[in-house]
Amino acid sequence: MLSEIFQKPKPIIGRVQLLALPGSPDWDGNWDILIARAEQEATALATGGVDGLILENFHDTPFSRERMDVAGAIAMALLTKRLKQFTHLPVGISVLRNDPETALAIALNTGADFLRLSVLSGAFVSESGVVNSRLNELLHYKNRLKAELPPLLVDLSPQHLTTGINQATNRQAHTLAHLLTLAQELPTHFGPISLAISSQALQPEALIAFKQQTRFPVWVEHESPHHEPDGWFESADGLILAAGIRKASALHPDLPPTIDMPQVEELVNRLRGVKTVQEMDPDIFLQR
């Protein structure tokens, strides 16, 4: 299971959003910026106290609905290896909207610890159109490589298509019924699965109801910049940081916002109940 990788309750992981990689539409040929940016994000997250990382080719937009470019896959593997050595944290791989074969190849060749998949079964409606599951292709590829699948962190969202849901009286109940139907349709015979659900999809109360009715561990991706993640963190098996930990760079205003380490540290410490120096009793420093 994914929790066994971290060996602690309620792990917190951060996303390293790689700049455009070779072979993608916005690749500019600048390896120095690509590497420095990846190292900054990974170091800021690790220093801030997260328990693991997810590497994403986030800026390879518009995403292909097929496979990742070979040059981009090699670059992502090199960066994965570098960041694992840099941080000594567990690392997950997420490729495109849904390219599990490339994600598996990168993981096997770099020692990455898990895969994050947008679509395990069924289909997903994205800005690029309908993205279909590649589970059949993934299992065939696994057999060709004579490999075992690492733990999977599988997204569930209202954008996923399903065979049908029960009628509900309000939007939150409708979303809850939709996600429960998706969870029931997931295959489980080939490896451990954990679910990732956006904080924008389910409120903490609905998340509790979801967890009570599914057999999978449930992680929450915090994507509500106007809400603190405490309620979701309390109810979930783990937290993925997405919102509220990025800042724009005055030195490189054209680059996307990067990780703000003090914000990560403050958030992680608060979620874990770790007091800052300012919050501690001053007398504790006078005791021998």
Rank of each mutant, 00 (worst) to 15 (best):
P204E: 01
T181Y: 00
S224Q: 13
P262A: 03
R134L: 01
F124M: 14
V125Y: 08
T162A: 07
L241F: 13
S128Q: 15
G164D: 04
I245N: 08
R215K: 15
W219S: 03
H178D: 05
L138I: 08
E148N: 04
H160T: 09
A196F: 02
I193M: 12
Q172P: 05
D260V: 02
S128N: 12
L161S: 09
E185L: 04
K142V: 01
L117I: 06
A201V: 07
A183G: 09
L179A: 00
S199H: 07
G129E: 11
L138P: 00
A173N: 13
S199F: 00
A236F: 11
L241V: 13
L182T: 08
D237H: 13
M261L: 13
A168L: 13
A123H: 11
G231H: 07
Y141W: 13
T181H: 04
P187C: 03
G238M: 04
S133Y: 06
P229H: 10
E228K: 15
A177Y: 01
W232L: 03
R215V: 11
D260F: 00
L239P: 14
H178N: 04
F190T: 01
L195R: 11
V130E: 09
L239F: 15
A201Q: 08
S199M: 00
W232T: 09
A242E: 15
L239M: 15
E234R: 09
E137S: 08
G238D: 06
I208M: 12
R246T: 14
A183F: 05
L239Y: 15
N170C: 08
D155R: 02
L207I: 06
T214E: 11
L251T: 02
A201I: 01
N143V: 03
